[in-house]
Amino acid sequence: MHYHREQCLAMFEKLSEYIDNELDEVSCKDIEKHAKECIQCQACLETLKRTIEICRESESKPVPKLFSFRLKELIRELS
């Protein structure tokens, strides 16, 4: 890590943009090359990716029936 500190910091700042495909090709290649050589940055990248995947799987809760019924009545009165 310490041998590559500057590269690590540069990569650290861009990880989200890399994951979101918002970086240019050269920056992507730089990140991929560095991640292969630096286990810490690779771990950081993989755990960040996993964090996003877990968020995306966040389950949706049903609307409470009583509230939904009251909302329907309210809308009916309005319209």
Binding site: F12, Q40, C44, E46, T47, K49, R50
Partner: peptide, 25 residues
Amino acid sequence: FIPGDESDIPQEIPEWAALPLEKLL
């Protein structure tokens, strides 16, 4: 959020990022 001290430096990808996602949820 920048990993700083030596104890924070992982030697491998943590299990929670390496396992298939469905095993975690």
